[in-house]
Design a protein around this nucleic acid. Structure first.
Lengths: 211, 211
DNA sequence: CGACTTTCTCGACATACTGTCGAGAAGCCA
DNA sequence: TGGCTTCTCGACAGTATGTCGAGAAAGTCG
C-alpha cells in the first residue's frame, strides 16, 4: 500500500527487505531507536542509502513493520484473564508474565515506538488500536464483574481499563529490570484497582482517633 | 553554569532571554515541542538564529529553563496529602486538582520534556529528581500507614509509590481533556492502590501455599 | 538468443535543521 | 577618547532526511 515499487513474489528484493528488518532488530538490541540512522539500516542490509528508500518510506516505516509483527504476541496469553470473571489472580499473573517477557525482548522497539507515536500517525494508530482492543475487552470484563457483584463500582469501566493499560505500559517502559517481583507487584496493584475497595470507615482498625 | 557568555546583571540581554522563554511558552501553547525550531524561537525574540546560541545552548536548554520554573508549582499543594496519614480523600483530591491544573496549562511542555528525557540527560535528571522527591515522600507515608495498620501490605512502598507517580503522569500526559471527573477517578484509583484490599481474603482460596 | 518489462540500485541533488567561529557593532564607564 | 564587556550576525561546516532519473540486473516471452 504505502510502499511503492514492491510487487508480490518471493525474490531477492524480499531478502533485502528482511535484511533491513533484521538489521533493525539487531541495532535495537544495542541502542535506542532515536540513535539509529537510515545509513546504518542500509549498511546492515548491504545496500546504499538511496536503495533503502525503495523498500521503506522512512525509518519509522521499518518500525511499523516490526510492530505489526509483534501485534499477535502482544495480544496472546491474555485471553483467559480478559474473558474470565472475578479476581482470578493466576490468570492475570500469566497474562502479565507473557507481556513482561515480550517487553524484556523488545523493550527498545516498544519504548521507541511509544516515544515516536505522537509525531507519527501510523505508529499512533497502531498503539491506539492495541490499546483500544485491550481496553474494550477489559472494560467488558469490569462490567460483567460489577453486574455480578464481584467488583465495586467506581470509574467508568473504559476509564479504569485505560488506567490499567497505562500503568502497565509505564511500568514496563520504565528504566530498570522487569523482574518477576515487579510483575507480582503489578498483579497485586491491578487487582486492587479492580476489586479493592476501601473497607468502610467503621471497619478501619483504629489505632489513633486522630482521623 | 552551562550558559557561556551571560554574566550577572539585569540588562538588555536579560530581556532577550526572557523574550526567548516567552516565545517558547507561546509556541508551546500552539504546537508540540518537537515541531518548534530554533529559528522560530529566535524570530520570536527578534534576534538572528546565531544570536540565540548566545543565550541558550540548544532548544532543550530552553526547555530545561522553563521546567525549572515549574518545579515549585509541581511540588506545591501536595504537602497536606503527602505528610498526612490514612485515606484522606480530600487532601488527595486537592493535591491532584492542583497537579491537573498545572498539566492543563503546561501539558505540551511537560509532555515534550517527558518525550525528550531519554535522550537529554539534563531533562532526565530533572524528571528523576522530581519523581524521586514525590516517591520518597509517598513511600514514607505508605510505611507510616502500614505501621499504623491503616494500609494493607503489598509491594515495597517505593515501588508502589513509583507506580502511583507513573499512573498520574501517564493519565495527565495522555490525549484528551483533563476533566474534574478524571481527577476524581484518579483519586478513587489511587486510594484503592494504597488502601484497597480485596474485601474477603478467605473467600477466594485461589492461592495455594504451594511455593 | 534477443527484445522487452519489471525489479532493483545508486550517485547526484535539494532541503531542513543544528551548531561553530570570528569579525565587529553596541553599550557602558572612566 | 580609549578600553572593556555584552551582544549580534553572516558565513561556514556537519548531519540527517528524502527525491529524482539514469541505468544495471533479473525475469519473461517471442
Amino acid at each position: 500500500m504505502s510502499q511503492p515499487g514492491r510487487r508480490r513474489g518471493p525474490s531477492k528484493g524480499d531478502r533485502r527487505e528482511q535484511a533491513i528488518l533484521a538489521t533493525a532488530r539487531e541495532l535495537l538490541a544495542r541502542k535506542p531507536l532515536a540513535e539509529i540512522t537510515i545509513d546504518e539500516l542500509a549498511a546492515g542490509a548491504e545496500i546504499s542509502r538511496s536503495s533503502f528508500y525503495f523498500y521503506f518510506d522512512s525509518k519509522l516505516a521499518v518500525v511499523v513493520a516490526l510492530l505489526h509483527g509483534l501485534t499477535g504476541e502482544l495480544m496472546a496469553g491474555s485471553g483467559p484473564w480478559l474473558d474470565g470473571t472475578g479476581p482470578d489472580e493466576d490468570a492475570l499473573r500469566r497474562s502479565l508474565t507473557g507481556l513482561a517477557e515480550l517487553w524484556r525482548s523488545h523493550g527498545r522497539l516498544l519504548a521507541g515506538a511509544l516515544a515516536a507515536a505522537p509525531g507519527c500517525p501510523p505508529i499512533a494508530a497502531w498503539r491506539a488500536g492495541l490499546r483500544d482492543a485491550h481496553v474494550s475487552r477489559l472494560a467488558a470484563r469490569i462490567e460483567r464483574d460489577r453486574a455480578a457483584g464481584l467488583a465495586p463500582g467506581g470509574p467508568e469501566p473504559a476509564v479504569l481499563a485505560g488506567m490499567i493499560d497505562d500503568l502497565r505500559t509505564a511500568t514496563f517502559a520504565g528504566p530498570g529490570e522487569i523482574s518477576d517481583r515487579l510483575v507480582g507487584d503489578l498483579v497485586t496493584v491491578e487487582l486492587r484497582m479492580l476489586y479493592g475497595d476501601r473497607p468502610e470507615p467503621g471497619d478501619l482498625p483504629k489505632q489513633r482517633s486522630d482521623g
